[in-house]
Design a protein around this nucleic acid. Structure first.
Lengths: 231, 231
DNA sequence: TGTTGACGGATTGTCGACAATTTTCATTCG
DNA sequence: CGAATGAAAATTGTCGACAATCCGTCAACA
C-alpha cells in the first residue's frame, strides 16, 4: 500500500511530513538502507520538491536518513559502532530522565505508562513485532515528556527512531521480548518515587535490549575475489 | 566589520558555513536574538540563497537559530526553562562522557586538555571573556571526542553552542571564572583512570557554572509605560 | 565470454524569476 | 504630539526550468 494514505489536498507543513517518515521508520515500514527518491515522496505527501528536500535535510540531521551527494537520500543504516553508541547515549540520557521523572510524575501518566506496558505485552504475545517496537518506543518517549526536559526529549526522539533501525538490522525473531516486565518494574519504581531505583532499572533495561541484539559488522563482500587470495 | 573575511571564490560546502556560524556564536560575535538575513549571509560566504537556506535549516534543527515564518532567521534566545534544560542535559551527557573517557584516554590527549586548561586560565586572568568561553567549550568537546562516542559528541556540540548563548544572556561580568581549576582537577581524575571521580567532578563543575548565572525569565517590557504606574 | 565504453533515461542540484508577506516610512488625522 | 493609515521597499517563500550527475542498457571488441 501507499506509504501513507493522504487525501487532504492542502500540503501538510514540514514537521508533519518529518513525523510521518519517522513513524514509518519506527513501524519498520521503511527498512534501513531503503532509497527515498524525491518524486515518490512528493506524490505521497502531495507537495513540491522544495518541501521534500527540506524534510530530507532535517531527517539527515537527526541521523534517520543519510544523504549521498548526487545519489539521493537513503534510510540510515547504522553500523555496529554507531549502534553501540546509540545505546550508550540512550543509557546516559534515559538514566537522567528516569531520575527526574520519579520526582514529578503524576498518577495519570503512571496509569498511561502501565497501560502502554500491558498493550506492549499483548502485542508481543501475539507476535506483532512492529506494534511492539512502536509501543515500546512510545513508552520511553512518554516517560521523557514526563521528566519535563524538552532538550532531552528531542534527543531521545532521535535515538528511539535510530534504535528501531538498529533492531531491524541486528535483531533476530526472538529479540525484544520480556520488555513488558521491565517496563512494569520501572513504573513501579516511579510510582514509589524511587528515582535511584528507576534509573538503575532503566540502565539495565537498555543493556538487556542491547544484549539481545547481535550487533556486529557485516563481513563486507570482497570487491575482487583474487585479492582475497593475494594475487 | 564583516562577519567573516572570505576571499576564496569557490563557495564553501554547507558544513563549513554551519561551523563558522556556530563558531561566531561561541565567540559571542553573534548575540542571542540577532537577526540573520539571507542576503548578507550570501555575501559573507559568497554563495547562493539556496545554500544559505539549507544552512539555516540545519542550525534551527540544532537549536542555535530560530526560524520565524515569513520573518526570517534569528540567533536563538533561550528562555530560563530552556537554559536549565540545556544544563541538565549537559550533566546527563557529560557525566557519561567523563566516565567513558577515563577508561580510554591517552597521554597525548591528557596533555592537550591540560594545555587547554592553562590557556583558559590565562585568558580569564587577562579578562578575555570570549576567548575563555571558546577554550572552555573546546575543552569539553575535546573530552567528548576522547570518550569515543560520536553520537554523544554531536549532541554535546549542540549543547555547547547553546551554552554560549545562555552565558551571553544570563552571565554577569564575574561569571565563568575559576573554571580552570575545575578543569585541572578533572584532568587529574582522568589521568588516574578514576571514572567515578571524573563523572562526579564534571557534574559539580556544570552545576557550578549554572549557579554562577542568573537564570531567570526577563520581565517582559510592558507594552504601555503608563500601565507600570497604574494609570 | 567477459570487459569496456558510450548512449539514453532518470534523478539530483542549482539558479533566477515571481508571488506573498513583512517592514519601513511618510502622511494624515484625532 | 502621538496614533493610525497606506503605499513603497525590502525580505522571505515557492515554483519551474535547466544543468550536472548517476544508473542501466546495449553494443563493440578482445
Amino acid at each position: 500500500m501507499a506509504l501513507i494514505e493522504e487525501d487532504l489536498r492542502q500540503p501538510p507543513p514540514d514537521s508533519a511530513i518529518v513525523d510521518r517518515v519517522v513513524a514509518a521508520v519506527m513501524e519498520q515500514k521503511l527498512a534501513a538502507g531503503a532509497k527515498l527518491p524525491e518524486a515518490p515522496l512528493c506524490e505521497a505527501f502531495d507537495c513540491s520538491r522544495t518541501q521534500i528536500r527540506r524534510v530530507l535535510i532535517v531527517l539527515a540531521e537527526r541521523g534517520v536518513v543519510t544523504l549521498h551527494p548526487n545519489r539521493g537520500a537513503f534510510v540510515a543504516s547504522p553500523d555496529a559502532e554507531e549502534a553501540r553508541n546509540v545505546f550508550a547515549a540512550r543509557r546516559a540520557i534515559e538514566r537522567s530522565i528516569a531520575l527526574a521523572a520519579a520526582a514529578r510524575i503524576d498518577a495519570a501518566t503512571l496509569a498511561e505508562l502501565r497501560a502502554n506496558a500491558r498493550a506492549d505485552g499483548a502485542a508481543e504475545a501475539r507476535g506483532d513485532r512492529s506494534e511492539s517496537i512502536r509501543l515500546s518506543g512510545q513508552f520511553h518517549l512518554r516517560l521523557a515528556e514526563a521528566a519535563g526536559n524538552a532538550v532531552l526529549t528531542k534527543f531521545l526522539e532521535e535515538l528511539v527512531a535510530r534504535t528501531s533501525l538498529i533492531i531491524g538490522l541486528y535483531g533476530s525473531r526472538a529479540t525484544h521480548s520480556c520488555s513488558e516486565d521491565e517496563h512494569e518494574a520501572l513504573v513501579a519504581a516511579l510510582a514509589d518515587g524511587d528515582g535511584a531505583r528507576a534509573a538503575d532499572l532503566m540502565d539495565r533495561h537498555l543493556l538487556h535490549i542491547e544484549r539481545l541484539l547481535a550487533i556486529r559488522d557485516a563481513v563486507e563482500t570482497p570487491a575482487d575475489i583474487r585479492s582475497v587470495f593475494g594475487k
